[in-house]
Simulated assay, not measured.
Amino acid sequence: MAKIRVRQHVNPLADKYQTPANPLEWDKIYGKPHQPLHLDIGCARGKFILEMAQLETNWNFLGLEIREPLVEDVNKRRDELKLQNMHCLFCNANISLKPLLSCLVPGTLQRVSIQFPDPWFKNRHAKRRVVQPELVSELAEYLAPGGIVFLQSDIKFVAVEMRDRFSENPGFFRQGDAEWLPENPLPVATEREIFTLEKGEPVYRVVFVKS
């Protein structure tokens, strides 16, 4: 997949990203709309969901990404691969999650991944980080009981903040006793994960389960 040049950082609080996405017509997007859904928030160039969709054909995959040129490129690649169980949507997840998920058949959303989100290092930019308490609450509302949320980052303070926000929500409990998971529980690694591990640097991972 040829890489296209896009801005690395997009301010999700900018006016242009405050319009919620329209509800999806699930039966027009997926060949089998009633399969369990994996939601990948911040799918970037889509390597992860494109590969997952080919490996797990009995699941549907929805990637959300705030950089529109990347979305167009991912969906073009999907069409080239003739995948009927994957879609990528241009939106701001913090604005669009509720209208997107509220029209799902209850129990459909069974897995969520948030991987290597933009860290927004400065404290004054904390509201720009994707995992806000409101997003956690919305996932708790729409994720099927027993469904999982997989979080990972190569920036420890980001991983800790994400972990703490899910821990604070009574709708979730953390899987396992270890502080961080030693391995990725999913069969596909993101480009960032591969890059980080090849440098010999740590990745901080955790899984939460919907109560």
Score class of each variant (00 low, 15 high):
145 P>E: 13
37 L>Q: 04
178 A>S: 13
197 L>Y: 02
146 G>L: 10
164 D>L: 04
206 V>E: 01
86 M>W: 00
62 L>R: 10
3 K>T: 10
119 P>V: 04
2 A>H: 09
132 Q>E: 13
153 S>T: 11
117 P>I: 05
139 L>M: 13
102 S>F: 00
193 E>F: 04
81 L>K: 14
67 R>D: 13
187 P>Q: 11
121 F>T: 06
118 D>G: 02
16 K>M: 10
189 A>G: 03
6 V>C: 12
132 Q>L: 07
89 L>H: 06
193 E>M: 01
115 Q>R: 12
86 M>H: 01
125 H>I: 00
5 R>S: 12
183 E>Q: 14
91 C>F: 04
87 H>Y: 13
71 V>W: 02
162 M>L: 12
35 Q>H: 14
180 W>R: 05
183 E>D: 15
52 M>P: 02
14 A>Y: 07
135 L>W: 11
127 K>C: 01
91 C>H: 01
199 K>M: 11
1 M>A: 14
70 L>S: 13
149 V>E: 09
99 P>A: 04
189 A>N: 15
157 F>C: 06
149 V>K: 09
200 G>Y: 06
49 I>K: 07
150 F>E: 06
49 I>V: 14
79 D>E: 15
105 V>C: 03
47 K>V: 06
203 V>K: 01
84 Q>N: 13
132 Q>Y: 01
106 P>G: 02
56 E>W: 12
147 G>E: 06
75 N>A: 10
114 I>Y: 03
154 D>H: 08
52 M>W: 08
109 L>H: 09
63 G>I: 11
70 L>K: 09
134 E>A: 15
54 Q>L: 07
7 R>M: 08
202 P>S: 06
209 V>D: 01
197 L>T: 10
193 E>A: 06
69 P>F: 07
194 I>W: 00
44 A>V: 00
30 Y>Q: 11
141 E>G: 00
206 V>W: 03
102 S>P: 00
163 R>W: 03
23 P>Q: 11
65 E>Q: 11
160 V>K: 14
99 P>K: 04
179 E>C: 01
40 D>Q: 09
24 L>N: 02
105 V>E: 14
31 G>T: 13
81 L>N: 02
14 A>M: 10
185 P>C: 11
210 K>N: 04
53 A>S: 15
201 E>L: 15
103 C>A: 09
96 S>H: 05
65 E>R: 11
31 G>F: 05
112 V>C: 10
125 H>T: 03
41 I>V: 14
45 R>C: 03
38 H>N: 07
92 N>S: 06
202 P>Y: 04
146 G>D: 12
35 Q>N: 14
188 V>Y: 11
9 H>D: 00
102 S>I: 01
32 K>C: 03
131 V>N: 07
11 N>E: 07
195 F>R: 13
47 K>R: 13
122 K>G: 09
4 I>Y: 03
194 I>G: 00
13 L>H: 02
77 R>L: 10
168 E>H: 04
7 R>Q: 12
211 S>Y: 01
198 E>G: 04
1 M>Q: 10
182 P>Y: 03
79 D>S: 13
57 T>K: 15
18 Q>A: 10
146 G>S: 10
47 K>S: 11
131 V>E: 02
7 R>P: 00
177 D>A: 13
97 L>A: 13
184 N>A: 04
143 L>A: 05
3 K>I: 02
36 P>R: 08
38 H>Y: 07
150 F>I: 09
183 E>A: 14
48 F>T: 12
71 V>D: 06
172 F>R: 07
